[in-house]
């Protein structure tokens, strides 16, 4: 598989009243065509900012992409013109958001909102664009699509609206779909439906998906590979199977332990912590050490001194921790 999207050493800064916040710090990621890449982490760790950087939608000011590159195959999107980025957005890379309730424009019919996307990216008549909208609504499993296309967002439920968002995002057959916590705002039963839908569509169209979530369960179900983020850094990445079964970074281990496993015996004593103590540090106050050091049960003096680089530990599995061997041994 070839590399479709490559993020290299991406740095994004935000100016706040408290000083400069380095929201993304030397992020490197790779998305191969046709795969589902999961990005996990707590809120505020930079997952969404990574997505917005790819889309070229970092709110500016106060945000600014300071360093790095984002390659779509060979083309650096950070150097692309505005006109080119408009072609890319929605046409080659599209995105769905966390809040289906507010992500659709309340004064336009949903069919028109989907058709607008098609009209922007394809040389097609208005009637055909509307046809495509109805077709997409059918694809995402909306009953009576011809009728629903004429509905306004407020007439649809949250799950329906997220389906509309997915239909819109996929309407121009993009090569990459970024899903930013697509189910967080939805009921649990609806969440499962949306996941199934994404999985089916992915199989059918071969669109590569970047799945942003804080839900390890969703990752286990969907993702081929995972990147774990913490305070603007990627601290571990690898195949989903490796990460879930053999997590190396103390933070990843904590995240996995937070997920209750129905199949495990509740009386069994857990080998590691089931909550992560403390909170994510303020990004304006990151020192030179490891960002996780304050919350880490395995902290050693070197953790406060120097930030660990992300290093491969086996084929496709990389970790940023000074004490990997020790952590795994415990």
């Amino acid at each position: 598989m070839t590399s479709l999207l490559t993020i290299k050493d991406l740095v994004v800064d935000f100016k706040t009243r408290a000083g400069n916040a380095r929201v993304l710090n030397q992020i490197s990621l790779e998305l191969k065509s046709g795969e589902i890449l999961g990005i996990v982490g707590e809120s505020g760790c930079g997952k969404s900012m990574t997505a917005l950087s790819v889309m070229g939608l970092v709110p500016s000011p106060p945000g600014k992409v300071s360093e790095g590159s984002i390659l779509l195959e060979e083309e650096d999107l950070l150097q692309a013109s505005n006109a080119r980025m408009r072609q890319v957005r929605g046409g080659i890379i599209s995105m769905i958001f966390q809040e289906p309730m507010t992500s659709l424009n309340p004064v336009f019919r949903v069919g028109d909102q989907i058709a607008e996307c098609v009209l922007l990216h394809e040389d097609i008549s208005k009637t055909d664009a509307w046809e495509r909208a109805v077709e997409m609504l059918t694809k995402v499993g909306i009953p009576e699509p011809a009728l629903r296309a004429k509905a306004y967002p407020h007439e649809l439920s949250g799950g329906m609206r997220q389906r509309v968002m997915i239909a819109m995002a996929l309407s121009c057959h993009p090569r990459v779909l970024i899903a930013d916590e697509p189910t967080t705002a939805l009921d649990v039963t609806v969440q499962a439906q949306i996941f199934d839908l994404l999985k089916d569509l992915q199989r059918e169209t071969g669109t590569a998906i970047i799945m942003i979530t804080h839900d390890m369960g969703a990752i286990a179900e969907l993702a081929d590979r995972v990147a774990v983020m913490y305070a603007g850094h990627i601290i571990e990445s690898g195949l989903t199977k490796d990460i879930l079964e053999n997590p190396h970074h103390p933070y990843t281990r904590g995240l996995i332990a937070c997920v209750p496993h129905l199949e495990t015996d509740p009386t069994e004593v857990r080998p590691y912590l089931s909550e992560i103590k403390g909170v994510v540090p303020s990004l304006t106050e990151l020192g030179k050490g490891c960002a996780f050091a304050d919350r880490c049960p395995y902290k050693t003096p070197v953790c406060e001194e120097r930030r660990p680089d992300i290093e491969p530990i086996s084929e496709g599995h990389a970790v940023a921790c000074h004490n990997v061997e020790y952590v795994v041994a415990v």
């Binding site: 939608l57 957005r89 929605g90 599209s94 958001f97 992500s103 424009n105 336009f108 819109m168």
Partner: peptide
Amino acid sequence: GSDYIRTARAKGVAETKVYTHHALRN
């Protein structure tokens, strides 16, 4: 600053049209 304006930008709507079509109408 609302979500649906972000959606409009994310599907490639030009900035002028974001203002005149998507935002102004609201």
